[in-house]
């Protein structure tokens, strides 16, 4: 039976990581599902769904030699997940300002209380070493509407953080 696994790989960035990892999986008979692969702070991070007929240990034996060669830490988990299970976000929130400790925690706590289910979040630090800027980009489903998110973030906004909340008006055409 086909089973889905989540494979996580993290390590220093170097050329050819994606090609080598995906080739090894393909040659072992895996199919890829949803994935994210990106560079974070000089590291390369991979999270991928792979379907595979065999057991978790067998898949580990497929991926471990490649991970070792590329000096990546590797983790394989059986998951209950499946494809075609997308959640359509209805709100995008972008936040930026001077880098402040705790900003992600306070923003996401307020948003969670106001009914936001985050489907995607990425954040980055830009600017310079002396005056870093924090930038965060969130997409999610506002269960209680956008107004309640705006109210929730009002106090944070008053602290000099720029916050934009806009609906995502997805159309199917």
């Amino acid at each position: 039976m086909i089973k889905w696994y989540m494979i996580t790989l993290v390590g220093g960035d170097k050329p050819g990581i994606v090609a080598k990892v995906t080739t090894a999986l393909y040659q072992a008979g895996c199919n890829l599902g949803e994935t994210t692969m990106l560079r974070l702070g000089g590291n390369f991070t991979i999270m991928l769904m792979a379907s595979f007929i065999g057991a978790e240990e067998t898949l580990e034996r497929v991926i471990e030699p490649v991970a070792e060669e590329l000096q990546l830490r590797c983790h394989v988990d059986y998951i209950e997940g499946k494809l075609h299970d997308h959640v359509e976000p209805n709100v995008r929130i972008t936040i930026f300002g001077s880098d402040k400790a705790g900003i992600v925690a306070s923003v996401t706590s307020s948003l969670a209380d106001a009914g936001l289910n985050i489907s995607q979040l990425d954040s980055d630090v830009a600017g310079s070493e002396e005056s870093p800027i924090y930038i965060m980009n969130i997409e999610g489903v506002a269960e209680n509407g956008i107004d309640s998110l705006e109210q929730a973030l009002e106090s944070i906004s008053a602290e000099g953080v720029e916050i934009n909340i806009e609906p995502i008006d997805t159309f199917i055409g």
Binding site: A19, T94, D122
Partner: peptide, 20 residues
């Protein structure tokens, strides 16, 4: 791209790690 399309101006710099 879903990432970075709102804020970042693209800076094109050839880099040794760009060839994935």
């Amino acid at each position: 791209s879903r990432r970075n399309d709102l804020f970042r101006r693209k800076v094109y710099q050839p880099s040794s790690t760009d060839n994935r």
